[in-house]
Design a binder for these strands. Structure first.
Lengths: 117, 117
DNA sequence: ATGACATTTCGAGAAACGTAAAAATATCGA
DNA sequence: TCGATATTTTTACGTTTCTCGAAATGTCAT
């Protein structure tokens, strides 16, 4: 992950529809979702969704594969991991505690926002 | 952190100069850096840097304060934390292991990219 | 007060982005 | 092969974003 790739990944997520799609894919897991279902879920035309999905895939945040006529999209966890690592790099230089407290609040069993019980 | 704020924060980071500035601020720590120094460091005019800094601050990723004629900018760790938490929400539904492996690679003592020895 | 310094606000042009209809491509069933 | 389905590519237009000079604002020393 270099600067350019990070900017591309962040730009891919910095759009309402795409951010929603990405989070939907994160929740959906490795099996992913069908392109058409995503277009329906987000209430946008197929061509618009295709454009967004292409951007997510180019940014390394989603992967796709075909099953007969259907195209599956799933979150690219490796890409997400690389992006977060890039953002967090050097975060704790001189103060590991600060970084630790930041990360601990993100741990799955500690996430509270965006994941209502 | 809601969807709109997350999009704003991601958009703030999805720009070459601003991403560099943010990472510089993350490295600089709580004392932050002076606006003019950031303009020099990034080689952009003061007005351009001011525009970028305003966007980072509006996005909740930076804070600023004045010391006589100088204006300090520092990374807003709480904002960064909220954004990462939002992105990670629901990441491990049904598969906590996947989320754990993702986070463990981000831990400060495991960061390798972007932080050359 | 006046001038010098640090930064922001305003304004305008160029470039990039989001949207979606229309046409093209790919796959399947009959 | 033909039509139907699923998706992408092409193309176009309106909007937003980026950039930076010029002017305005805030601060300090004299």
């Amino acid at each position: 992950m270099d600067q350019d790739k990070a900017v591309a990944a962040l730009a891919a997520l910095a759009q309402d529809t795409r951010l929603s799609v990405f989070r939907l894919l994160v929740k959906a897991g490795p099996d992913g979702m069908i392109a058409g279902s995503l277009a329906q879920a987000m209430d946008v035309p197929p061509s618009t969704m295709s454009h967004h999905l292409a951007k997510l895939e180019q940014a390394g945040l989603a992967i796709s594969w075909r099953t007969s006529r259907l195209i599956h999209y799933a979150a690219d966890y490796a890409g997400m991991q690389a992006l977060l690592g890039f953002l967090m790099a050097d975060c704790c230089q001189g103060d590991p505690q600060m970084c630790d407290s930041l990360l601990s609040s993100i741990r799955c069993d500690a996430v509270s926002e965006g994941a209502p019980a």
